[in-house]
């Protein structure tokens, strides 16, 4: 009897380290932050819990532009990542031959360099008198005032560049799993290469695209490094705002409230996306078209 009970409880015991990990690194910090977000006071006199939910309202009213901008930048970067990453993953998966692993390694190679250094080097490349613009300006091809840094193009470009591998890898995995005989069967059944791509490869790669979107959109929307290094005053993202509130203004409650608004927004977005484009539904949509 005892033995059987033990056997039935075994999965829970085995999951214990996982639960502990979640508790220590996720639940406790989140509860602390949640409590912080409704406190008032300042860093000198100390913060006290006053259930001041107004922090959320104030945070949204003051920074709604940055919120919406972040979601927009994240969205554009994600779409660009699909546009660039899908062909790359497709090419490696179907034409990589015996060099698939080497090609994937080459793709990841730049990312062994620190995130900040990598982004900083884009700053050098795109600088107003940097290696791209100064020859163009000297040759009179672009006007001397023309600049890329501090524009949305630079920030979105940086986001796209930095999160590209998170799109390529899951799409690659999905494509790699497509049985070659399926493409032969499609071709046998009168499909042109374009039709095979649209009717077989695309639908079967959707789980990878789905994962890639999550892995790209969430971190890109909450990123602050790209806007800090490549952006200007008009490209501030919510990540920058939170950072400033926390480290410069030392307004911990508002920073915490902003974090929760961002988290809530992302969760709603992700769930809506998963509902409409869940893997199962993707396949059904492909079947109906």
């Amino acid at each position: 009897m005892n033995a059987r009970l033990g056997a039935r409880l075994a999965p829970y015991w085995l999951a214990l380290p996982g639960w502990l990990w979640l508790l220590v690194f996720f639940v406790i910090p989140i509860v602390v932050m949640l409590s912080l977000s409704t406190q008032t006071g300042d860093i000198l006199t100390g913060f006290s819990q006053t259930w001041h939910w107004q922090n959320y309202v104030n945070g949204w009213n003051e920074f709604s532009t940055e919120f919406l901008r972040s979601l927009l930048y994240g969205l554009i970067a994600t779409v660009l990542c699909i546009g660039i990453g899908f062909p790359v993953a497709y090419w490696i998966a179907f034409y990589g031959g015996n060099h698939k692993s080497s090609l994937l390694f080459l793709l990841l190679l730049p990312f062994f360099v620190s995130f900040v250094i990598r982004t900083q080097s884009w700053n050098f490349i795109l600088a107003d008198d940097g290696m791209v613009l100064s020859p163009l300006k000297n040759a009179g091809l672009v006007s001397p005032e023309f600049h890329i840094l501090s524009t949305p193009v630079a920030v979105i470009g940086g986001l796209t560049y930095n999160f590209l591998p998170f799109m390529v890898l899951p799409i690659y995995v999905a494509l790699e799993r497509i049985e070659p005989a399926l493409l032969e069967a499609s071709s046998d059944l009168y499909a042109s290469r374009a039709a095979s791509l649209r009717r077989v490869v695309l639908p079967l790669s959707m789980p990878g695209v789905f994962a890639g979107v999550l892995l790209t959109f969430v971190p890109a929307s909450s990123d602050f490094v790209n806007a800090t290094i490549l952006g200007g005053t008009n490209t501030t993202m919510i990540g920058n705002v939170i950072q400033t509130e926390y480290f410069t203004n030392l307004d911990y409650p508002v920073a915490a409230a902003l974090s929760f608004i961002l988290m809530g927004g992302l969760l709603i977005g992700v769930f809506a996306y998963a509902r409409t484009l869940g893997t199962g539904d993707i396949l059904d949509m492909a079947a109906a078209s």
Binding site: E179, A181, A185, S187, D188, L189, A191
Partner: peptide, 16 residues
């Protein structure tokens, strides 16, 4: 294959 008037039944079936 898509322009040949023959069809194949694959050993693995290769159903979509």
């Amino acid at each position: 294959p898509n322009r040949r008037d023959v069809n194949m039944v694959f050993q693995s079936y290769a159903l979509f």
